[in-house]
Simulated scan of single mutants.
Amino acid sequence: MQPGGQFDMQQLLAQAQQMQQAVMEAQAEIAAAEVEGQAGGGLVKVTIKASGEVVSLTIDPKAVDPEDVETLQDLVIGAVNDAMANAQQVAAERLGPLSGGLGGGSLPGLPGF
């Protein structure tokens, strides 16, 4: 604040610009991050980018039973959901310190935020 109790608008704008840059950097890190999810004690594993793109899917042959396709489908869904939850956790960890100054609003382009 300047003498007389007035805000220094240039300083405020500079701080806002720094915060915007930090958020953009965090968003870029999150978009590049890959996380893993698994189900069935590791019988099904999936790796996704934090943006939600599936990168790889590994299914242990023990999980494949031609007479019980539903269980395999459930394991794949569980692994993807686990990976998505892990991606959201990565985003929360990286953006957590920055989100305090954003008024609790949503962050465009990030699922769940």
Rank of each mutant, 00 (worst) to 15 (best):
L107S: 00
T58A: 13
A16G: 12
V80W: 05
A92K: 10
S56G: 07
G101Q: 15
A87E: 04
S99G: 09
K62W: 05
P61C: 01
T71M: 15
Q18Y: 08
L98E: 14
A79Y: 03
D82Q: 05
A32W: 04
N86P: 04
D65K: 10
A39I: 11
K62P: 03
V90W: 02
M19W: 06
L72Q: 05
I77Y: 09
A14L: 08
E67P: 05
Q11L: 11
K45Q: 15
D82E: 12
A91T: 04
Q6F: 15
P97Q: 11
S106C: 04
P111C: 08
Q11N: 14
L43I: 06
S51M: 01
V64M: 02
V64L: 01
G5P: 01
E53F: 03
L12W: 10
P3Y: 11
L110C: 08
K49G: 13
V44P: 00
I59G: 04
M24Q: 15
F7Y: 10
A79D: 11
L102S: 06
L72H: 07
E29Y: 09
I48L: 00
V69N: 09
E29N: 14
E67H: 12
P66C: 06
G52H: 13
A50I: 03
M19F: 06
G78M: 01
G103K: 02
Q21A: 15
G5N: 04
E36Y: 06
Q11T: 13
Q17F: 07
A91K: 00
D8R: 01
A63I: 02
L107Y: 00
A83Y: 04
K49D: 12
E93S: 12
G5V: 05
P3G: 12
L43V: 02
S106F: 03
G105F: 02
L95H: 05
K45R: 15
E53I: 01
G5H: 02
G4A: 01
T47V: 02
A79H: 07
R94K: 12
V76Y: 04
G105H: 03
Q89H: 09
Q21I: 06
E70R: 07
I77A: 15
S56R: 01
E53R: 04
L43E: 11
A28H: 13
V35T: 12
L98C: 10
T58R: 08
G105S: 13
D68P: 01
I77V: 14
I48S: 09
S51I: 02
E34D: 09
G40S: 06
E29A: 13
L95E: 09
L110I: 14
S106Q: 09
G37F: 00
T47R: 08
G96S: 11
L57K: 00
G78H: 06
A32L: 01
A79Q: 08
Q38T: 14
I77F: 10
K45S: 13
L110S: 13
G78S: 08
Q20W: 01
D65W: 00
R94M: 11
G100N: 14
A85D: 15
Q10C: 07
E25S: 15
